[in-house]
Design a protein around this nucleic acid. Structure first.
Length: 582
RNA sequence: GCGCCUGUAGCUCAACCGGAUAGAGCAACGGCCUUCUAAGCCGUAGGUUGCAGGUUCGAGUCCUGCCAGGCGCGCCA
């Protein structure tokens, strides 16, 4: 509906250009059309006269009048007027609303989808948590946000792929391997201290048990010669020494067996967890594979070929500061190993090589330092830096009975995503996670999420859906049958304020999907669905749907079914179920 | 010290690239179940949008400077 006004305005402006009133038709995005907040202003408003008055050398209201005079006729438009400083207000005829309501029922599950993003490929990378332990509640927010965002982008026509970058290389994996092996020694009654800065979590013991079942005591070695971490001044360095000593003691192949055991166990747990949460990925991209496939070498060669590197102190540096980063970055250490950053830009280069137009990364707020350097990397490799789009997700604080819970992965003290899901349910978790803007800290209150009350928006929205289903059941019990065609041709019978309001909210859905997707803001959809549910509940309380008059009954049932359809579609994009009974 | 995010009703938050009178929920108070699910609805009350300037027809939104909170600034990943 919005786009039809947009089209009318564009036509009018073209007419004015041909008559010499305006110099040129402005760019598409400068012609803004918005829903009005106040119904007395009509249904839609445009500020284009105010935007263009300066270049036209006219007063805004005079230009607005000229634009109105140049509008092509349309039987959808009932009234056009000038208001305030120069707004052009449009009011749709009831037949226009009825046509849109018909569309909802005809298009069904695909109502709200569009082709805005057609032909563009987007790679949404999200979660990408280190596979060193189970996902916790913070990762859950990334999962819910990324999945909803990907769904939204898909709904407006983008070709979307979802990817999880698996950090299966590097120091954290080595610490994990050592932690597992020490736990395994424990199970084999060999005394060995687990350093406090190793992974302490209970889940490591479970994996150690598996390792023992598979390998018996064949991986046991005498740990007495290993360095201790506990008394060391610098515990991180001491831990590195311990890693090196373990690698030597076990041998590279055996160490790898232990490490891969930990990786496989944890990764498969993460996969199960996410899949149960309704979050699926097209690909789990191994960091390790980047060096194996030569992607890192390709990236480094590109940097060198474009003269963006230099050698200092035996290391290879990338001149990131030339391209907007705050300092230069090491890509190859003096010991010849490439850095995590080298993998990172190689991964992003590889995404571009696969043909993605938009590289959309969902990252934790603590990663904001990456943006400048990865963009610099892309630019240095000859890729457009703007192709990288980063959405930062702020932290989640978990509250139980008004008390904040502390979390730390290494110490093993955290609430896992799985525990959260079991406690509050997938639906409540998915919705509450995306209810707030991504750059807003989220206070996740467990008691609130569990409460089956109006505090809890998920129930409120689902309840609206269930009520429509319930009305349909009642309808059949009373021996009636809903005739959609009769309902749609009787929509003129719906003229109470509640009915008109619901009609307008329902038909706002396609615009909402578009806005939420373009703003990368699933929370806008949540707020919309709450509004819609509110309009429905209000209507439900004010009027009886199952009435004697067949035309009126069919019209009302048709209308509430469009609300049901839109709620189902919207919740679907958010990964939340739309139950028929509650 | 530098950088990113945040600051809106008692609390948790909205406000669609700057739009018309800043909106919801919770909490508080008062009403609505012999009628399709009361997990609901209606009403009342609640604001100098952290502070001070600036930009313009118009600023919660943009710019500058302060104040407060969170996070980040490794040849870690």
């Amino acid at each position: 509906m919005k786009s039809s006004i947009h089209a009318l305005l564009t036509k009018a402006l073209e007419n004015l250009v041909s008559r010499g009133v305006l110099e040129s038709v402005p760019a598409e995005e400068t012609i803004q059309v918005e829903r009005t907040r106040d119904p007395s202003h009509g249904d839609f408003a445009s500020n284009c006269a105010m935007m263009l008055c300066k270049s036209a050398g006219m007063k805004p209201r005079d230009l607005a009048q000229q634009i109105i005079d140049s509008l092509p006729g349309s039987h959808w438009i009932q009234e056009v007027s000038i208001a305030g400083p120069g707004f052009i207000n449009f009011r749709f005829s009831s037949s226009a609303w009825h046509a849109e309501i018909r569309r909802v029922l005809e298009e069904g599950v695909s109502y709200g989808t569009s082709h805005l993003g057609k032909g563009k490929q987007v790679l949404v990378e999200f979660v990408s948590a280190n596979p060193t332990g189970p996902l916790h509640v913070g990762h859950g927010r990334h999962a819910a946000y990324g999945a909803s965002l990907a769904n939204l982008l898909e709904a407006i026509g983008y070709d979307v792929r979802r990817e999880y970058y698996v950090n299966d290389a590097g120091r954290q994996m080595q610490i994990l391997a050592v932690s597992l092996w020490l736990r395994y020694l424990e199970l084999n009654k060999v005394a060995a201290a687990l350093p406090e800065n190793a992974y302490q979590g209970e889940y490591i013991i479970d994996i150690a048990r598996d390792l023992q079942a598979e390998h018996g005591d064949s991986l046991v070695r005498d740990p007495s010669g290993l360095p201790t971490v506990a008394d060391a001044e610098d515990k991180e360095t001491a831990l590195s020494d311990l890693i090196a000593a373990c690698q030597k003691l076990l041998g590279e192949d055996t160490f790898r067996i232990v490490q891969d055991k930990a990786l496989d166990a944890i990764l498969s747990d993460i996969k199960d967890d996410l899949s149960e949460f309704g979050v699926v990925f097209d690909r789990w991209y191994s960091e390790r594979s980047l060096s194996e496939t030569g992607a890192i070498d390709r990236a480094l060669e590109k940097l060198q070929a474009n003269n963006h590197t230099y050698i200092k102190g035996g290391a290879t540096w990338f001149r990131a500061s030339d391209l907007g980063d705050e300092k230069d970055r090491v890509v190859v250490r003096d010991n010849g190993q490439t850095t995590y950053f080298a993998s990172d830009i190689a991964y992003h280069l590889e995404k571009r090589e696969r043909g993605f137009d938009i590289l959309l990364d969902v990252l934790g707020a603590d990663h904001h330092g990456y943006i400048a350097r990865v963009r610099a990397g892309l630019e240095a490799m000859g890729e457009p830096p703007a192709s990288l789009e980063v959405k930062l997700v702020q932290f989640v604080s978990l509250f139980r009975a008004g008390k904040k819970e502390q979390m730390s992965t290494r110490s093993g003290q955290f609430v896992t995503l799985r525990q959260l899901r079991e406690e509050v349910g997938n639906d409540a978790a998915r919705l509450i996670y995306v209810m707030r803007s991504n750059d807003q800290h989220l206070d996740f209150d467990l008691e609130l999420a569990k409460s089956q009350s109006s505090d809890n928006p998920v129930y409120y929205i689902q309840y609206a859906h269930a009520r429509v289903a319930s009305v349909t059941r009642q309808l059949h019990e009373k021996g009636y049958r809903w005739d959609p065609e009769s309902g749609l041709s009787s929509l003129h019978a719906l003229e109470t304020p509640h009915e008109l309001a619901l009609m307008k909210t329902v038909t706002r859905y396609p615009e909402m999907v578009e806005t939420a997707a373009m703003n990368r803001a699933p929370h806008m959809l949540v707020h919309y669905l709450r509004d819609l549910a509110n309009d429905f509940h209000t209507y439900y309380n004010a009027h009886q749907f199952i009435v004697e008059d067949q035309a009126l009954r069919d019209a009302r049932i048709s209308l509430i079914n469009t609300a049901r359809q839109v709620i189902a579609n919207g919740l679907g994009l958010l990964g939340v179920s739309a139950p028929d009974t509650m």
